Structure formats: C-alpha cells, structure tokens
Amino acid sequence: MTVAKLTMQDKAAMAEIDPVWSRMRSEAAEIVENEPLLGSLVHAVVLHHDTLEDALSYRVSQKLASPDMPALILRDLAKEVLSADAGIRQAARADIVAVYDRDPACHRYVQPLLFFKGYLAIQSYRIAHHLWVSGQTDMAYYIQMRTSEAFGVDIHPGATIGKGVMIDHAHSIVIGETARVGDNVSMLHSVTLGGTGKEDGDRHPKIEDGVLIGAGAAVLGNITVGRCSRVASGSVVLKSVPPCKTVAGVPAQIVGDAGCSQPSQSMNQTV
C-alpha cells in the first residue's frame, strides 16, 4: 500500500499503533493555528507526511543537502535506510521521548524534529551508521561531514549509539569511530568521546546505559564509564569509572555515588 492510497481509516489505524507520531501531528496543527507564519515550515516538515519516517527523511535531507548532493537524492537514501532498519525507526521515537522527558526547554514531542539540532544530528548519524555497516563507507563519510557542518556534531559513522539518547544544545560534540554509547544516555554540549593519540584499533570510550555526561567533559581512550554514572562538567576522564559513581576533575576522580538510580533521566548535575 502506497502513501497515496492511504484512507482515513488507514491513518487512524496508524495513529493507534504510532502514538508518538500521532501526538506530533496534533502538536504541529496547534503550532499552525497559534503561529501562522510557521505554517509553511510545519506543513512541509510534519503535516504533509503520513509517517515519522517520511517526515524525518524530508527534514534530514533538507538540512544536509548541498551543491554536491541535492536534497532529493538524500531523501530517497534516507527513506531507503529507514525502511530497511527497524532499529533506527524505534530509536527515532525513543530519542524524541528522551528529549521531551529530560529537556526542560522541550514542551512538545514535535519540537526536536522541527527545532533541535541534537536530535537531527543523532538521526543523521543513525543513517550514516547503517550505510557504514552496509559497506557504503564513502556515503557514510559524506553524511558525517555534512552533519558536522550543519549541526556542529561530529560522530564517526562507525561509532555505536543506543536508543533514548539526548544531546542537549549539541554544540561541538565529538564521538570517535570505536566509541560505544548505550541506551538512555544524556550528554550536554562540548562533550568529547575520543582517543588519546594516533593508536589504531579499539581506542575510544564505552559509555554504558543511563550515563550522564556534563558540558565540556572529555572521556578519552578505550575505557568504560559504568552504567548510571555521572561525569561532571569540564572533567577529563582517563580511566574507567565503576557503575553508579560520580567523577569530577582533571584528571577525573571518583567523588561520590551517582546520587540517584537514573542520572541521565534526572539530569541532576550537582556534585
């Protein structure tokens, strides 16, 4: 069944099985009513589409397009990847909910798709990662380059990132090739998950589920930050961190427990 043949009953059924997208469309209609000057944008990004996948393909392609690569080509590529990869489709929704739950500046599900470059950068990375794993490494590198230029977020397509991830403000984020980021991780701007030199191989950090990384923190080398731990703003982490701990300083040291069971969700950065 093609989009052109969708009936009202089809759309109602889709809304029932995709409550995130249904809510986004309702919120988009409210924006158009309250702020008519944004009507063209909101219709183009949200209301003209029947699925989140179509809307996301459109938004990402518009942002990443350049004279070297027209938006139409990128849109077809993104739609093909999203159609083939159920994991990306699930993560796109989990990331929206994560931003809404954790960012006090986010008041609607539709805001990340419309306005938040951290969300769009992660979804662009997810498309690039799928291409990387599929062997289309040059196209993956191209999307990495354009994501860095468009959003100020440089994530190597070889990195592995889980779902329910929030990057707040998303300025000057760097995540290296062999980094792994688990589910339900939150990080603020200017975070680096990098190496310590020119070594090859597995050389980047492993961030386990539920970790909170503060603004300006650097986690360097093939080390592990244990689940539900906190890295204080401005810290430089050079050795592994046990689960459920808080580290701070340069170089970072353990300064206490994490303070709660889910620091990435509470977003409490007080040391």
Rank of each mutant, 00 (worst) to 15 (best):
L212V: 06
Y109A: 02
V237R: 10
G118H: 00
I254A: 02
Q123V: 07
L131C: 14
M69Q: 14
H204Q: 04
D183T: 05
I155L: 04
I96N: 01
G210Y: 07
G249P: 10
A215C: 14
H156M: 08
S134Q: 09
P251N: 03
D183C: 07
R108V: 05
K245I: 03
G176E: 06
V20N: 06
V97K: 13
S124M: 01
Q262W: 08
G135W: 11
E35R: 08
P104T: 09
F151C: 01
R25T: 04
H49E: 01
R25G: 02
M166T: 03
I122G: 01
G162M: 10
I127A: 05
V255Q: 05
M139L: 15
S22Q: 02
K163S: 15
A218D: 14
V231I: 15
K206M: 13
D54C: 02
G39N: 15
Q9M: 13
K11S: 15
R227Q: 13
G194V: 02
A29E: 15
I254P: 06
A91P: 14
V271L: 12
D76T: 10
A159S: 11
T147A: 12
R59L: 04
Q253E: 14
V32D: 14
H171A: 11
L56H: 05
G197P: 01
T192R: 12
L114P: 08
K5Y: 14
I254F: 04
E16K: 08
I143T: 14
T196K: 15
V20F: 08
L38W: 09
H130P: 11
R146E: 11
R146T: 13
V219E: 13
A28M: 04
V181F: 06
T246P: 07
R108K: 11
L120Q: 07
L47P: 11
D101M: 00
M14E: 12
I213P: 09
V153R: 02
V153C: 02
A258M: 06
D85H: 03
S57H: 03
T160G: 11
Y119R: 00
I161P: 13
C228R: 12
G214L: 05
I143P: 06
P104L: 10
P67C: 01
I31H: 07
G197L: 08
S61V: 00
Q62P: 03
A217M: 10
E80Y: 03
S172Q: 15
A12V: 09
M14L: 15
T137E: 15
L114C: 04
P70Q: 09
L212E: 03
A28E: 05
A179S: 12
V236M: 13
M139H: 14
T224A: 10
M145T: 15
A4V: 15
H130T: 09
S22G: 00
